[in-house]
Write a protein that binds this DNA or RNA. Structure first.
Lengths: 114, 114
DNA sequence: GATATACTTAACCAAATGGTTAATAATTCG
DNA sequence: CGAATTATTAACCATTTGGTTAAGTATATC
């Protein structure tokens, strides 16, 4: 798991498109060919190819050449980066739920917080 | 939790920008004013205001007017949508790890899968 | 009431995104 | 070899995105 800002940009950016999310969801079940992946969508093959490249660059899938075909497989690790970031936010947030405690123990409280 | 495709577009899209992720991470600790949120970043206030609007439209934060200020608070629910989607992918994927089982039990196996 | 403060909205711009069709590359099949 | 299949790359286009500065709005303060 890398979890630097650039890779999170790429991962979340890749997941922001419904076609790419659907592609990834398909791959979660089994490896698939490019044509096979593109088939359910009403877009050209080059458009699908681009989506796949975006997912690959974000580290969310891996392509391997098999004859004249390309086998696409999901790489679950990159999703873990996104998950870890979200979890971090939620941990911070749940800690803040003890805000009253913090308030009562904070002598330097200046009263200018929202 | 809504978890429709459009709202996931908005949530993942909002999280795809490093400034917006940093804003959200700040808000995870405590509610903050717009100016206060914008201060750490080397961008104009209107730019920050736009980022905040993107986060708000994605349902990731809520703004309430307090005098001439705007208090920004994180809304953790929307993050749950993203988390749920990622979890779903990972569940599908972990089920597929039993692929050998599936293969052995599948009479209709045609052998044309990658 | 005049002025400062805290924003948002408007208008604009460059770069990125998501789509297209046409061309190219690599492999298989007749 | 020649033709079909499976992609990718190139060139192009419209829209969205992330930034700017300038103007507007609402509230607080002198």
């Amino acid at each position: 798991m890398v979890n630097n800002s650039q890779s999170l940009d790429a991962v979340f950016g890749a997941l922001a498109d419904p076609t790419r999310r659907a592609i990834l969801m398909q791959l979660a079940d089994r490896p698939m060919w490019v044509t096979e992946l593109a088939e359910p969508f009403d877009i050209s093959l080059p458009a699908a190819s681009k989506h796949i490249r975006v997912l690959a660059r974000a580290g969310l899938l891996r392509q391997t050449k098999v004859g004249r075909n390309r086998k696409c497989e999901i790489v679950a690790d990159a999703l873990g980066d996104a998950q870890a970031w979200i979890n971090q936010v939620e941990i911070f947030w749940s800690e803040r739920l003890n805000a009253l405690d913090k308030f009562l123990n904070d002598d330097t409280q200046k009263g200018n917080q929202p």
